[in-house]
Amino acid sequence: MKILLVCSGGMSTAIVVKAIEQQAAKTGRALAVSSVGAGEFPAAVKGGWDIALVAPQVRHRLAEFQAAAAEAGVPVALIPPQGYSPLGGAVILAEVDKLLN
């Protein structure tokens, strides 16, 4: 499964990427997770992702991200605030599974 995360500059999502990867390693799941800043998102989202996740602090730009992702046919979801932390990998993966199944 391929997951793309987007925040303002791509910095804080990089931390969350690590959290998701750690959680995936713990449960033995094969995942490819990557993060970008809002400016790169329209181009990056075309890279064949299964889902794009939007960081809570840029949720006010959700419509903009949805428009870009719709063109690439990628579903978009908001990351729940409590999942957006170095310890939030499990919360995010549970949310992703709920959305994709």
């Binding site: 804080s12 931390i15 969350v16 960081a55 602090q57 957006y84 932390s85 939030g88």
Partner: peptide, 16 residues
């Protein structure tokens, strides 16, 4: 959140 904080990234503490 400490090392990100030193680098002025604080989403981990804000949401954590």
């Amino acid at each position: 959140a400490f090392l990100p904080g030193v680098c002025n990234i604080n989403e981990p503490v804000i949401f954590g």
